[in-house]
Each structure stands twice: as C-alpha cells, then as structure tokens.
Design a protein around this nucleic acid. Structure first.
Lengths: 128, 128
DNA sequence: CTGCTTGTACGAAGTAACTCGTACAAGCCG
DNA sequence: CGGCTTGTACGAGTTACTTCGTACAAGCAG
C-alpha cells in the first residue's frame, strides 16, 4: 500500500497527509512502537491544552516537513516546551528527529489512524 | 426521531444505544451541558484506566437502564469509586441519577456523539 | 576559537490528582 | 425503632504533574 494513499471516498481526513520521509533523515528519537500505543496514555497526553494545541497545529498548519519547537511561537520557557514535546513523543503522538541543532516534530498520522481511527479528526476539530 | 435511530450505513456504533428515560426518573445530578463539554477535559477523565473501563463497560454491557457503582464489581473502597464516578460526571461522560439510596449512571451517548463523533467508538474498542 | 542558537538535564517549588480510612447521611426492611 | 445498604464528605498521605530557572551540550557562522 503506497504511503499517503488515503482516498476512501467520503472519509478523507481534513488534516494534511504526511509526506515521504527522505532516506537521509536522522533516526527518530526513542518512541513507543505502533503496537505499544495505549489509548489512555494518548488521551492523558492530550488532556493538556497546550499539548492539544501542539498536535492540532502540527496537523492543520504544518507544511510538508517537520517543525521545530520555536516554529509554534509559544511564549513559554524552553524547558517547559521540552517537557511537553517529550510527553507527546513518549505517548506516541509525535515523532521527533534531530536535524543538526534543531529537533523537529510531526504527528504520527499513520500509526494513530491505524490504532485509534478518528482520534485525529477530533483533535483537528478541537476549538482551542 | 426514535431512540437509537442511528442507521447511517456502515457507521452504526457497536455500543448499545441509549433508552428512553421514563418521565418519573429523578433529575440528573449537576453536570456540564452539551455545549460546555471540553475535549481536553473528557480525555483527561479517560486517561485513568479504571475510568476508561467504567465507561467502556457501561457502553458495551449495560442493559436498558442505569447501573449502580456496585454493579461493576470493582474491588476498591467506596470512597475511591465515588471520586472516579464524580470525575466522569463532571467531565460530562456519564449522567447520574439518584434512585432512592442508589446512584445510577449511564453514558451520555447522544451528547458525546454530537460533540465528539467517534470518541465512544474508540472507548468501545479499547483493550483493557 | 568566540559567540550565537536550539534544545536538554537537573532540580526545586507549587499544584493537582489518586487512594483510602473514617464518620456520616439517607433510604429501605424487619 | 434498629439495623442494613448505598453512597457522600472530609481529611491525610502519597504520588504525579506542571512550571520554570539555571547550567550545560552540540552545531553552525564569523
């Protein structure tokens, strides 16, 4: 099945499909595998408004590549953002890669749709 | 619209539809209205495995009426169960009514499907 | 090398959540 | 009435989470 082939009529998600990761991209940081994703952990990660906003923003406004912490423009100390991005990664919501001195994130759309179909649509519809 | 008339082809939820509440039923305990439901609060309530199990059990195994705390058979002190059921009610997941000396609960299927379509299907599919 | 940038690690302080024991209220039944 | 049941209220102990300052590491530009 080709990557991004998500064309079931009438069920196309409103959030952007993910792109093809280039072969020379760095390895992802440690994260739970698809089978290890737990719904209650994912929901716990999304119970924080800032983290919900991070995922939603990545889902709706991200271009065809990963984004750094600073791209979001949050007015919070760096150590706080580190905490929230790590929480999202350890819950399995985002994948992070280290590009030089930047750490870029994107939503694990495929894994989340496979394990929890419809969950990302709820996040996309969230009114912050 | 008859109760349980949820027959969009291929999208029928696997959990039991709710029943008609009799006219002489007690008033529900204080709860947030449909418009006041917040996705991050609902997810926070579901981030506890015991509470996830309560909602899932109500969804899949409940008969055509409300159920008491004791019906679940949890091996926890009563004061702990009070805490979790109240958390679920205040988050808007369940509705509670006082019948004599029992307090019975059911999932707010209509409100939750209207505000967060697909969320209850995720709960029903949860592997505890 | 010197600075600048991105982000981590660590720790501390404050807050919130969970668990549970005890005491109490309210309804039902003998 | 007295006892039984269902569940609450309150409080304490513990744990977990959040927030953030500071110090540090690593990459890049000059």
């Amino acid at each position: 099945m080709p990557a991004g082939a998500r064309s079931k009529a009438g069920a196309r998600p409103r959030f952007a499909a993910r792109w093809d990761v280039p072969d020379d991209a760095p390895e992802p940081l440690p994260e739970p595998g698809r089978a290890a994703l737990r719904l209650e952990v994912v929901m716990g990660a999304l119970s924080d408004p800032l983290r919900m906003r991070i995922v939603r923003t990545l889902l709706l406004e991200s271009e065809a590549f990963d984004h750094t912490c600073g791209w979001f423009g949050f007015d919070r100390p760096k150590s706080s953002l580190t905490h929230h991005f790590r929480t999202l990664r350890e819950a399995g919501l985002i994948r992070q890669r280290q590009y030089g001195l930047e750490r870029r994130s994107h939503v694990r759309v495929d894994d989340l749709e496979a394990r929890f179909p419809g969950l990302l649509a709820l996040v996309a519809d969230w009114e912050g």
